[in-house]
Every structure is written in C-alpha cells, then in structure tokens.
Design a protein around this nucleic acid. Sequence first.
DNA 1: CATAGTGTATTACGATAGTAATACACGTTG
DNA 2: CAACGTGTATTACTATCGTAATACACTATG
Lengths: 131, 131
Amino acid sequence: MTSGPLSFQIHPSSGVPIYRQIMDQAQALIASGRLKPGDLLPSVRQLAVELEVNMMTVSKAYARLEADGVLERDRGTGMRVREQTITARVADRQRELRELAEHVVTRGLQLGLTDEQILAVVKTLLKDRRA
Amino acid sequence: MTSGPLSFQIHPSSGVPIYRQIMDQAQALIASGRLKPGDLLPSVRQLAVELEVNMMTVSKAYARLEADGVLERDRGTGMRVREQTITARVADRQRELRELAEHVVTRGLQLGLTDEQILAVVKTLLKDRRA
DNA sequence: CATAGTGTATTACGATAGTAATACACGTTG
DNA sequence: CAACGTGTATTACTATCGTAATACACTATG
C-alpha cells in the first residue's frame, strides 16, 4: 500500500471552521509522520470534492499553513510539507508558547487545582503524544 | 485608603473584545486578592462611564462571569465575588483543563520544543502567579 | 505549444459577534 | 411609598468571518 488516500474527515457543524479543521488534521498527519517533508498534499480540488467543500476553503487552510511555515507552494505541482527549519532559539519559541499557556494556568487556578495537578495534566498529554 | 477605585483599563482596538477584557481584568483582580469573596464590583453604569463604553458591554462581561460561577448577582445591590465552592473532584476538574492544555502541547511540539521545555513554560507561569 | 493540472484573487452572500440605545423589572433606602 | 440604585431584555446596527462561485495566472507534460 502506498500510504492510502490520506484520510481527512471533517465535522461540518461542530462550530469549528472547516478550514481550521483541515489545518489541524494536516498538522496531525505531519506530526504523526504519515506526511513527511517533501510529501505532496492532496490538491485543493481533490480534497474539496472528497470533503464536499469549496476549493477556496481548502486553499485557505493551505495558505495559512504556508504562512505558518508548515507547507511550501510548488508552482504547478501543489503544496509540499516543508523541511523543518527551526531557527529561532529555544527561549524565543518558549515565549511564543507563553500566551497559550497563560490560559491553561488561569483556568487551572480558577478551578482550584494545585500547581502539581495542573502540571500533571500537561505531563499526561505529552506522554500520550510521544506514545 | 479603602482599596482605591479598582483600576480597570481597556485597549479599545487591540482585537480583543471589550467585554472579554473586562472579564479578564476582573478575574485578575480576584486572583491577585484585590477583590475578595463578598466584595462588590463597580456597577455597570459606573464602569461603563469610566471605560467610555456601553452599559450592556459591562453587563455582558458580568453575566458571563456569573455563568462561570465567578460572580453572583445580588438583586438591587450589584455583583459580588462569589465564595469559592469547588465541589467537583480533582480528576473532573483536570479533565476540564485537558482541552485547553492540548493546544499548548500541540503548539509546543510543533515548535520543536522538548517535553521539559514545554513544562518549563508552564512552571514559570505558575511561579509568577503565586508570587 | 496545447492541454490539463496546480493554487489564488475577486466578489458575493449569509451568519455570527460585538457594541450600543432604550425601556424595563426589581430591590434598597430614606 | 417614592426616588434612585441595581442588572437585564429587546432591538438594531455594523463589522467581521466563513464559505462559495467564478475567472484568472502559472507550470508540468507530452
């Protein structure tokens, strides 16, 4: 089997915008290794038909992933997974994570959880990801 | 001094909705102890004038905080900080935190950070909050 | 060099979100 | 019990967002 048809699947009215669902799933495919640097993603038309969605919705997802540095456009060919070129220093990348983490901390404290209980949630998620 | 006028301050066009800025700042005042359980918040009219914003915008913030269990409405008097009555078990509260934490983990891994580097971000934020 | 395959710019439209103006219901207070 | 203080329901207006239909620019390929 040559990797199968890269199953994407969306939930039309989950409240989450379709283009964002596509973004998330593409990133998940990359994170899980089913899509490697250099690999081609399904064309906007192909995926649009498969998901019964407009081309532009897929295009929007791809364009954003390109802006995020996840994909690169190969003119006349399609969108490829980009080689991971992480240049920023660790501290800079951590800073980028801070705002997101603030929400977790705020909510966790509001729930009356201890520092350890909050950290445990994050640790568990990390373990699950590595597994 | 009887605690001062509870300085609220909003940034009108920061992209963040005004009612959400009010929510965040109220929660911050509570978290920092400048507002304690039983304390009265500024009336919607008073705060609306101070921030040069409509009453309903303030009311919306208060109403949401009430729905979140942070405030309680004291009819004819105003909105009070609620006594923290956490009933749910720790595990249940942790589960509620999971979805939020997922975003942090996803983004952190995407940034190529190690588990320890991700945890460090959260730990730092927790320390800052306790200080 | 024609064809068919890429992704995208433009435009439009419906739904939703944020804010506001106004009128209302209720409780405190003297 | 009257006046004033709470917060809120209703309504409306505006901006933005998400999606789509269409036409376009570009490139691989045979």
